[in-house]
Simulated assay, not measured.
Amino acid sequence: METLEEPGLCFPQLFNASCRKHTTPRSETLFIYILLSCMSVLTVTLNLLVIISISHFRQLHTPTNTILLSLGVSDLLVGLIVMPFQILLTEPCWFLGDLVCVVFFFFGFITVPASVVNMVLISVDRYMAICDPLHHPTKITQRRVQVCVVLCWVYCAFYSFVILYDNLKQPGRFNSCYGECVINIIGALHIVISFIIPISSIIVLYMRVFVVAVSQARSMRSHVAAVKLQRSLTVTVQRSELKAARTLGIVVAVFLMCYCPYFCVSLSGYNITMASSTNTFMNILLLLNSCFNPVIYAFFYPWFRKAIKVIVTFEILQPRSCQTNIL
Score class of each variant (00 low, 15 high):
Lys309Pro: 03
Lys309Ser: 15
Glu91Lys: 06
Phe104His: 06
Ile185Met: 01
Trp94Ala: 00
Thr43Ser: 15
Ile32Tyr: 09
Ala157Lys: 07
Tyr159Ala: 09
Val154Gln: 09
Lys309Thr: 13
Arg305Ser: 05
Ser321Asn: 13
Val124Asn: 07
Leu80Gln: 12
Val265Lys: 04
Pro261Ile: 06
Val312Pro: 04
Glu28Gly: 00
Glu315Leu: 00
Ile202Ala: 00
Gln216Met: 12
Ile32Phe: 13
Ile197Leu: 15
Phe304Pro: 05
Ile87Arg: 12
Gly249Asn: 04
Ser53Met: 12
Phe15Cys: 06
Glu28Ile: 03
Ala217Trp: 00
Ser74Thr: 15
Phe15Ala: 06
Met39His: 10
Gly72Met: 05
Ser74Met: 13
Glu5Asp: 10
Tyr206Arg: 05
Leu286Ile: 05
Gly269Thr: 12
Cys177Phe: 01
Met282Asn: 04
Phe281Pro: 02
Ser321Phe: 14
Ala225Cys: 05
Phe255Glu: 07
Leu229Gly: 00
Ala244Asn: 11
Gly97His: 09
Leu288Val: 11
Thr138Arg: 14
Tyr297Gly: 03
Thr247Arg: 12
Val102Ala: 02
His190Ala: 12
Cys181His: 04
Thr278His: 02
Leu248Arg: 01
Asn293Asp: 09
Cys260Leu: 13
Phe195His: 06
Leu88Ser: 11
Gly97Ile: 03
Ser201Arg: 01
Phe106Pro: 02
Ala307Glu: 05
Gly72Ala: 03
Met39Arg: 02
Ile122Gly: 09
Cys19Lys: 04
Phe57Glu: 06
Phe95Met: 05
Ser321Glu: 14
Val162Pro: 07
Val112Tyr: 11
Ser215Arg: 04
Leu267Cys: 15
Thr313Gly: 11
Gly8Lys: 11
Ile140Pro: 01
His135Cys: 09
Leu327Pro: 00
Phe109Glu: 08
Gly269Gln: 08
Val192Phe: 13
Lys309Asn: 13
Gly269Glu: 13
Gln13Asn: 04
Leu96Val: 01
Leu35Cys: 14
Leu189Asp: 09
Leu76Lys: 03
Phe255Asn: 07
Ala213Tyr: 00
Leu69Lys: 13
Phe95Tyr: 15
Leu189Arg: 12
Asp98Arg: 04
Val192Lys: 08
Pro137Gln: 05
Cys322Asn: 15
Met1Ile: 06
Phe281Arg: 07
Tyr297Gln: 02
Arg221Leu: 10
Ser222Thr: 12
Asn175His: 14
Val44Leu: 00
Val162Asn: 14
Glu28Pro: 00
Asn118Trp: 08
